[in-house]
Design a protein around this nucleic acid. Sequence first.
RNA 1: GGCCCGUUAGUCAAGCGGUCAAGACAUCGCCCUUUCACGGCGAAGGCAGGGGUUCGAUUCCCCUACGGGUCACCA
Length: 487
Amino acid sequence: MLNNVVRTRFAPSPTGFMHIGNLRTALYEYLIAKSAGGKFILRIEDTDQDRLVDGALDAIYDTLNAVGLRHDEGPDIGGPYAPYVQSERKDDYLAGAQRLIQEGKAYHCFCTTERLVELKEAGGDHAGYDRHCRNLSAEEVKDKLAAGVPSVIRQKMPLTGTTTFSDTVYGDITVDNTELEDQILIKSDGFPTYNFANVIDDHKMAITHVVRGSEYLSSTPKYNLLYEAFGYEIPRYIHLPLILGEDGHKLSKRHGATGFSDLIAEGYLPEAIINYIALLGWSPTDTRELFSLAELIERFDVDGISKSPAIFDFNKLKWFNAEYLRKMTEDKFLSLCLPAFKQALPDREFDWSLLASILQNRLTTLNEIPEMIDFLKQLDENYSIEIYKHKKMKTTLESSLDMLTQILPLLETVEEWTRTVIHETLIGAAVAWEVKNGYLMWPVRIAVSGKSVTPGGAVEILTLLGKQESLRRIEIGRNKLMAARND
RNA sequence: GGCCCGUUAGUCAAGCGGUCAAGACAUCGCCCUUUCACGGCGAAGGCAGGGGUUCGAUUCCCCUACGGGUCACCA
């Protein structure tokens, strides 16, 4: 009945914060399931009790929620295969391991950590376990167990031959069994290792597609051997190419903000992040790049997954972010900006929607707002008058002083200080004086902003500042220019 | 070091034997324009190298180089 339903799972361990690589894996798992009308399951892999980190679980839920990856089953919402937390399924693993022991496919190993370390040192850096306990006699095992000697359970790997598995992305991969160590199934603390718990759970939870990063490619033969030992059906493997930092190494902290929450803190939008990482390792059949999550579900296809690793490029992310900012409705954009506006300009009321409108296609991230609008709060009177000179506008210190002196009385007569009236006044003046718009606008904008580059033009800035403040700033500019002339 | 995987411009990436080798980001130029940005147009830039196979290789095979991953009582 459920045989044809695609089931994927995102199985993070709560040992840190949500990394971009993990998120991308979760995204693809989600897309693979949803594009086939299947189920996306969340399972928490907390078998390493020493590495649990407070808050890590919340980060997982918060991130999935923020980007809209809704799971169909999971610890918080339950499901037909509950529980979805590995520490609550310990009995399953132990029972499985016992069964393998009984069938002669696994064994107790009493080797101490010290012995293992010595082995490694003696045999060079890359020596594996020597299978010392593989052939202990039944009595010996019984005695040690009875005496309470700590032990782990290891799987007996075949000593000869090869193991082949098939990956949807990478094709058939074969390794010599001699490469495979007798892997630990159950640790001495009674918890299962990752590999073992994974196989048991994926089978019991009827996972059909095992999707994960390609760093697991080399441990996949071990999975197959486990599935075979149990007689379980082998799931479809889909390994994903890694995401690397700009230096070509696996993405990590030293590459800057690569945690989901870091990116959010830097002003990136969840939709932009999702859109970008969807394209890191996958491409559609056409040249389209902008996709909502729903559109990704529609278009996603495992055929488009690539094999080679991708370098995380902040430039491209920035472009996506700017695109999302620009195509947002004005209201949505305003509501996103408002907190930053009010924080940057605390004392006065501005025309917030006008401010938002001049910022909307100039922003890359929300975090750029403060520095872009700080001049509205206060004029830095120490700006250099050199910026009044502009070659293309043909403005000079003299012409600027002239324009400012002439426009001041005109602006004083403006009763209704609105964008339209200000615009008419300025343009009207330029026409009347037979000068190009920029010849007048440039010095006015410089005077009211003190900056050579501003979001918006003279008209917008005057409108935002209000009559009194605008005239005050123009007056200041005029005085600066006059003082310079008299030197 | 062994094993595994990969290699098209600075980056993402299409290509699945015959193409002037798409497209996007970044870069540069021009246009638009009261600065910047947006938008429009354009430029520069690539099949890692060497052998095969083939009438013909970016595409298939081998070798080399480079890059990455993995070799835990971590996931």
